[in-house]
C-alpha cells in the first residue's frame, strides 16, 4: 500500500542513553505542503529530522518517507529527499563553487559546473564563490548549505532551523526558495524557533514537546485553540463591574481586571464576537466606553501557552 502522505510516522522513539529524546512521534505531512515543527530547545526536533532522513535509526516505531519505509528502504528514501541540517554541513576547505560541483557530481547532474553557477547566483554567492567556505559568514554558509540541498529538486526537503541567525534579506531569500519549491510540488518539513516563520510558510504546524507531537493544526486553527484577547477600557472605576458583567455574558470567560488602566479583559474562542457587536452590547448596557479591542492571538501566545500546558 502506498501512503498518501509525503511523511507519515507512527510512534517513533529514540533514546540517547538516559535521554528519551523522542517518545512516540506521530506525524503526517500531506504532499506539496509545508509542515512546520515547532518546539522549545531540546523538544526533539533535530532528532526527528535525523531519524526521518535516515541519519539515525529509530529504537521503536515506523515511518514512511515518500512512500518508502525508513528502515527497510533507506536508499529509496535518500533518493527522494534533501536535507539541510541545523548546523552547517559544507566542506570548509573547499570553495563554495567546489562544494556545489561536488554535490552536483554526486547527484549525477548533467553539467555540474553550470548547475553550481546557477545556484551560486540564485543565493547571492557568486562574488564569494571562489573563496574557501570556511571564510564565509554564518549566513553565507547557511545559504550555501541550502543551495547544496537544491542541486536537484527533491520530492521532500527537510530544513532544520533554516533561518536561525540570518539577516532579513537572507531570510527572505530562503523563504522565497521554500515557496518556489512548494509551488513546484515539493513537500517541505521545517523546524523553527521563529513563530513568524511558521506563520508565513507553514500550512500545518506540529507542536513538539518532550519528544511527542502535542498539537497539530494550521496556524489559524492553533490560534483558535487559544482564542482572542478582548479588552475594554472604561471612563471610571465604578462601571468596571458592569463592563465585566457584559463581558462575562458575551464570553463566559473569567474576566481579569486592570485597575490602573480601568480596564477589564477576557479570552474568548468565540469567533462570532466582533468589535461592532462588542461595542453595541456595551453601549446598550450603558457602559461609558473609552476603548475596546479584540486582539487575535499570535503564534507566540500559542507556543507559550501550549508548551506550558505540556510542561504542567
Amino acid at each position: 500500500m502506498t501512503s498518501t502522505y509525503a511523511v507519515l510516522s507512527e510512534g517513533l522513539e529514540k533514546r540517547f542513553g538516559e535521554v528519551h529524546a523522542l517518545r512516540g512521534l506521530d506525524l503526517a505531512v500531506a504532499p506539496g505542503t509545508v509542515c512546520g515543527i515547532l518546539g522549545s530547545n531540546g523538544a526533539g526536533k533535530t532528532t526527528a529530522v535525523r531519524l526521518l532522513t535516515t541519519l539515525l535509526r529509530p529504537d521503536a516505531g515506523s515511518a514512511r518517507v515518500a512512500g518508502h519505509d525508513l528502515v527497510r528502504e533507506p536508499e529509496a528514501v535518500r533518493r527522494a529527499i534533501a536535507v539541510t541540517g541545523q548546523y552547517a554541513s559544507v566542506d570548509g576547505d573547499l570553495t563554495g563553487r567546489q562544494n556545489l560541483r561536488l554535490f552536483a557530481r554526486l547527484h549525477r547532474v548533467r553539467g555540474p559546473a553550470e548547475r553550481a553557477a546557477e545556484l551560486l547566483d540564485r543565493f547571492g554567492l557568486t562574488e564569494s564563490a571562489d573563496r574557501p567556505a570556511s571564510t564565509y559568514s554564518g549566513g553565507m554558509r547557511r545559504r550555501l548549505d541550502l543551495a547544496a540541498s537544491l542541486i536537484r529538486r527533491p520530492e521532500i526537503l527537510f530544513l532544520d532551523e533554516p533561518t536561525t541567525g540570518l539577516d532579513p534579506a537572507s531570510r527572505n531569500l530562503i523563504w522565497d526558495a521554500v515557496r518556489d519549491l512548494t509551488a513546484d510540488g515539493t513537500t517541505v518539513l521545517l523546524t523553527t524557533q521563529y513563530l513568524e516563520e511558521a506563520d508565513q510558510l507553514a500550512h500545518d504546524i506540529a507542536l513538539v514537546a518532550k519528544g511527542r507531537v502535542a498539537h497539530t493544526g494550521s496556524p489559524s486553527q492553533l490560534k483558535a485553540l487559544i482564542g482572542a484577547h478582548v479588552e475594554i477600557v472604561v471612563a471610571d472605576a465604578d462601571v468596571l463591574a458592569k463592563a465585566a458583567g457584559v463581558l462575562d455574558q458575551l464570553t463566559g470567560a473569567e474576566p481579569s481586571f486592570d485597575h490602573v488602566r480601568n480596564s477589564v479583559g477576557a479570552v474568548t474562542r468565540d469567533t462570532t464576537l466582533t468589535l461592532p457587536r462588542l461595542v453595541r452590547e456595551l453601549d446598550a448596557a450603558g457602559v461609558p466606553l473609552l476603548d475596546a479591542s479584540i486582539r487575535p492571538p499570535t503564534l507566540d501566545d500559542v507556543f507559550l501557552r501550549l508548551t506550558k500546558e505540556v510542561a504542567a
Partner: peptide, 16 residues
C-alpha cells in the same frame, strides 16, 4: 574532521 563539520552527515543523506 568530516564528522565534526557535518560533511559526513550530508554525504550520508545522499543516495551514493
Amino acid at each position: 574532521q568530516d564528522v565534526h563539520r557535518g560533511v559526513t552527515d550530508r554525504l550520508r543523506t545522499l543516495p551514493i
